[in-house]
């Protein structure tokens, strides 16, 4: 059994300090690859990023072949995402997400709104990605969270 331990990170700086479970993941599309700050969010059903991130990686959301490929898989290429703070249109497209050398193809919702660095994260990892790969234990008291490669059970 391998358990990876991560410390919570302080966000944002200053008086209003909050602790967030953040990790770094690789995000790859064709020839482009980079590490990204990512929020591990058990409250999100889906994995989310932004159109401008996808564009920089080389995803062309105006490509009708991409749209056809997604629609052919029974998904909506242009969708509406509902959240606690409102809703937003988003494109659906897969990308490779790499965590600790483990590469997985994840269907990501790319938000059609500007990434505001004052209060957005480049990637939010939801139930459909990291939570499907690891058993995750959050300990706010220890300010740590743990990713277990094995399935935890009684």
């Amino acid at each position: 059994m391998t358990v990876f331990s991560f410390g919570y990170q302080l966000y944002p700086p200053g008086e209003t300090e909050k602790y967030r479970p953040m990790i770094k993941v690789g995000l790859c599309y064709r020839e482009s690859t980079a590490g990204f700050q990512a929020l591990v969010d058990s409250g999100s059903d889906i994995t989310i990023s932004f159109v401008e991130v996808g564009n920089a990686l080389g995803i062309d959301f105006s490509d009708t072949r991409l749209a056809s490929e997604i629609e052919g898989r029974g998904m909506k290429f242009l969708d509406r995402i509902e959240g606690l703070t409102g809703s937003c249109e988003a494109y659906t497209a897969p990308a490779k997400v790499v965590f600790n050398g483990r590469e997985e193809t994840v269907v990501i919702k790319w938000l059609k709104q500007r990434l505001d660095p004052r209060n957005d994260f480049p990637i939010i990892l939801g139930q459909d990605s990291i939570f499907s790969l690891y058993d995750i234990h959050f300990s706010r008291r220890q300010k740590k969270f743990f990713l277990n490669t094995e399935i935890l059970s009684k």
Partner: peptide, 15 residues
């Protein structure tokens, strides 16, 4: 390489 965002002092994040 790593890309990251640094939030503002008064950011309230409800995701």
């Amino acid at each position: 390489i790593t890309f990251a965002c640094v939030p503002s002092r008064n950011a309230v994040m409800v995701k």
